[in-house]
């Protein structure tokens, strides 16, 4: 199948190095300590953060740092067919774990010992790249909750189809079965905190694809920073400073 036309356009009209349109909104869940909605094209996720708060299950309490918990789920209406998915299936357990580890790496957990931070992410609409969107939403929500972090974590995926590296795969490209590289970085520190790949890729091409994904992450980081700044300004204005 032709995923990139000889004219250099992908199936949805993007060029290989282009991301989908991204949009973010802070404060979608009033009850939560921090929350955000993050959209990458037709992929839409919502994240809510509770904490730091008292550890609910005392047996899990950690003496010198905060406990980070994460739950990923997909809304039943998020995909085309309304299938009721079981909670806690293999895929969502794995993604929950991935998100938790990624977030844990940037939260300064040692500042909040004996406490617990809960991150809930739910996919409202799925069109490929849900993992990345969830991490980005979680970052925003954590920042909104005022939880101390080393840096923002941002994530983006890239793939390799028709001998072309492609940034930010959508569902159709994702299900092509080609390599799918998901990268999460700390943009300021220039460190990679997440790296996953499906399928095989020669090492020299992997380098290109990974660089592309990192570029994507940086673009997301810039956008997220803008959103946060805007949000802060608004808060400032409301307080009348």
């Amino acid at each position: 199948m032709e995923y990139v036309s000889p004219e250099g356009l992908r199936l949805d009209g993007r060029r290989p190095m282009e991301m989908r349109q991204i949009r973010a909104e802070i404060g979608a869940v009033a009850k939560a300590d921090g929350s955000a909605v993050f959209e990458m094209g037709n992929t839409k996720v919502i994240a809510a953060v509770y904490g730091p708060r008292e550890v609910q299950n005392k047996s899990q309490l950690i003496g010198d740092q905060a406990l980070v918990r994460c739950e990923y789920s997909m809304a039943n209406f998020s995909t085309g067919d309304r299938r009721r998915k079981q909670k806690g299936d293999r895929r969502s357990t794995e993604i929950s774990l991935v998100i938790r580890q990624t977030m844990e790496a940037c939260i300064m957990t040692h500042l909040m010992p004996r406490s617990q931070i809960d991150i809930y992410v739910q996919v409202l609409q799925a069109d490929g790249g849900t993992r990345c969107a969830c991490i980005n939403a979680a970052t925003l929500a954590l920042a909104d909750a005022g939880i101390p972090m080393r840096d923002l974590v941002t994530s983006c995926s890239a793939g390799y189809l028709n001998s072309t590296p492609l940034l930010d795969l959508n569902y159709v490209e994702d299900s092509a079965g080609g390599p799918d590289v998901t990268v999460g970085i700390l943009p300021k520190l220039d460190k990679v905190t997440l790296f996953q790949m499906d399928s095989k890729l020669p090492i020299d091409i992997l380098d290109n694809v990974m660089q592309l994904a990192i570029e994507g992450c940086k673009a997301v980081a810039n956008y997220i920073r803008e959103i946060l700044l805007e949000n802060t300004k608004e808060l400032e204005y409301r307080r009348g400073v």
Binding site: L11, D12, G13, R14, E18, R20, Q21, G41, N42, G80, D81, D127, N170, V172
Partner: peptide
């Protein structure tokens, strides 16, 4: 540069399903 116009398409893959694809219009 990007214009997002999602459009709705119906495809038949055993059963009728509504599919949504993004379609970016360029200048």
């Amino acid at each position: 540069m990007l214009h997002n116009k999602s459009f709705v398409k119906k495809t038949k893959a055993g059963k009728v399903m509504k599919q949504v694809r993004e379609h970016y219009l360029r200048d």
